[in-house]
Design a protein around this nucleic acid. Structure first.
Lengths: 154, 154
DNA sequence: TATTGTTATACTCTATAACTATA
DNA sequence: TATAGTTATAGAGTATAACAATA
């Protein structure tokens, strides 16, 4: 006898219906970002780098002499939260802080040889991770996805 | 005389070059997600809801009787961190916790009338926000973007 | 023995206020 | 007066361990 299940006032949920949330751009973007970042964190831990550490070092790599202020506004980090990151990279000998050529208040950030070697490996790891994370996308789809994401936030 | 600028050993960075980071899917997905969520947080604060609160209430709305365990696995939340959210929604009279029909350990979650009224407004706000956040996308691009994001995380 | 929900707690990330040195 | 960098600290978000009740 299974009639009881039919007359139960509040039956159990068997499969969760996520269709509504999946219509929301914010939900999808957040879930996709978190799933990539999860793998990113795992693989970057080999280098002792967190996600933001990698972003900072990458900007220093491609913008030698960049200042903390420029890093903050580019990456949307608050200045007090960058201090510890820079100090840590400095202690590890990955970056150097030299006087800014024209602004006595600022410091220009530069990669050391050790930092350059580490970032060469880290960026290779990031490239590998990219293909893994987007393995279900064609090359065209991948380019389209990045273009559309940039239309959202840029 | 401006020769000094040319011979300066480490010139200042004028415009930050972000081209490398912008080739990374994780970076783009994260930036896009954060820019949408920032607006989402602002507009949902009217209802006293955080991003996760909205997701939880939304799943309860479309899955009456859903359990905490199901919410956790669906939204990738850890059980201890859901307890306070559920308790808060309960205190505010937005949800009810009824005994689960077949599992004595679990509680089935249901929206109250007040919760239903609030979510009707909140989902309308979410819909408005969706069009604002994706205003630079065509309807087709919007559908494509969601489809490609789901290929990443689903 | 495994699972649901819970408490307590620790850790990380992000945000705010206030200070200094220089522009 | 405004800005770059810093300190201290508060708050939000996320993680782990351990427990009682039930499966």
């Amino acid at each position: 006898m299974v009639t009881q299940r039919k007359t139960s006032p509040s039956p159990a949920v068997e499969a969760v219906d996520t269709r509504y949330l999946e219509t929301l751009m914010g939900y999808n973007a957040r879930r996709a970002a978190l799933s990539i970042i999860e793998v990113f964190m795992e693989r970057m831990s080999v280098y002792g780098l967190k996600v933001v550490d990698f972003s900072v070092l990458s900007l220093v790599t491609h913008n030698p002499g960049i200042t903390s202020r420029q890093l903050c506004s580019t990456l949307n980090i608050l200045p007090p939260n960058l201090v510890g990151i820079i100090a840590s990279m400095d202690r590890r000998g990955l970056i150097e802080r030299r006087p800014h050529p024209s602004d006595g208040r600022a410091m220009g950030l530069h990669l050391t040889e050790a930092g350059l070697a580490l970032m060469k490996d880290a960026e290779q790891t990031a490239a590998d991770l990219e293909s893994d994370a987007t393995s279900r996308l064609s090359a065209t789809e991948r380019k389209t996805l990045i273009r559309l994401l940039q239309k959202i936030y840029l």
